[in-house]
Nucleic acid binder design. Structure first.
Lengths: 144, 144
DNA sequence: CTGTATCCATTCCGATACTG
DNA sequence: CAGTATCGGAATGGATACAG
């Protein structure tokens, strides 16, 4: 089980938190880039978005985030928990019950993420129109 | 050359824009999910973020988005252009000069994205602290 | 129910070489 | 400079089986 960049990551030339000018995502090896990827990743964004409204149990979340596999949801949840955005609450009952919810920090992230998501959803007609224009123009000057 | 979901995508049961309740990213086959992934993807978010401040030429952008390969930048730019977020401006000079800039829609996306990015950058100390706590607790109850 | 472990196909993505 | 084409290794991600 690896968080995908813990092993891949190697230090190169300049780091980013070395000066007190803070964490710049544009630098290759800045840890903020990793967190950004957890949050904006394919399943991360949807998971955080879903948890903004309410807490979920594992399989509830799995149904809400349409298309995610057990493996990916588990992996995503671990990464978010490690970054302090998600809180895992396990109750030692039988059968076991585990609830996932956002931390306060997670909620602040979710707000910003949902703002982006809702904006995009609302502008999809424009996006779709742009796509058609783009695709049309391509067959016009056909290579092949 | 494929945008990675144009070929993968197959229609399954319910679509999401069938009712006029709009585009829900939580549905597996909603086109808004694809656009969200272009925008929030590993290179998409950084590309859009970089272009918010100023226009860039291809190789300038490549240097700004530290770590991106030619191939990925090209691919990312095409996807964003197709979605109507990026405008490509080619001048038929010699040597060729091509400028990339955001469309008005792209700018609105960039604002929201940068809001998220800057928020995360500012909270990295908390994230890093959470990680340490998480990692510590793990070696305590060691499997292995 | 809540996960982890394994297998395997697909995709990603960087390096390189090449075109205009 | 601004890309495209191709290749191969690495990572992603889904299905299944299994464990607590």
């Amino acid at each position: 089980m690896q968080t995908s960049e813990t092993s891949t990551q190697q230090e190169s030339s300049g780091a980013c938190p070395d000066d007190d000018l803070a964490f710049d995502v544009f630098s290759r090896n800045c840890p903020s880039r990793g967190t950004l990827e957890h949050v904006t990743g394919r399943w991360g964004s949807l998971t955080v978005g879903a948890l903004h409204d309410t807490t979920f149990r594992f399989n509830e979340l799995r149904r809400r985030v349409d298309g995610v596999s057990e493996k990916m949801l588990s992996q995503t949840l671990h990464a978010l928990e490690r970054d302090g955005l998600v809180q895992r609450e396990a109750q030692p009952t039988n059968p076991p019950r585990v609830d996932y919810e956002l931390t306060p920090l997670g909620h602040e992230v979710a707000e910003r993420l949902l703002d982006l998501i809702h904006f995009l959803e609302g502008r999809m007609p424009e996006v779709l129109a742009a796509r058609e224009r783009y695709d049309e123009m391509r067959e016009g000057l056909g290579s092949r």
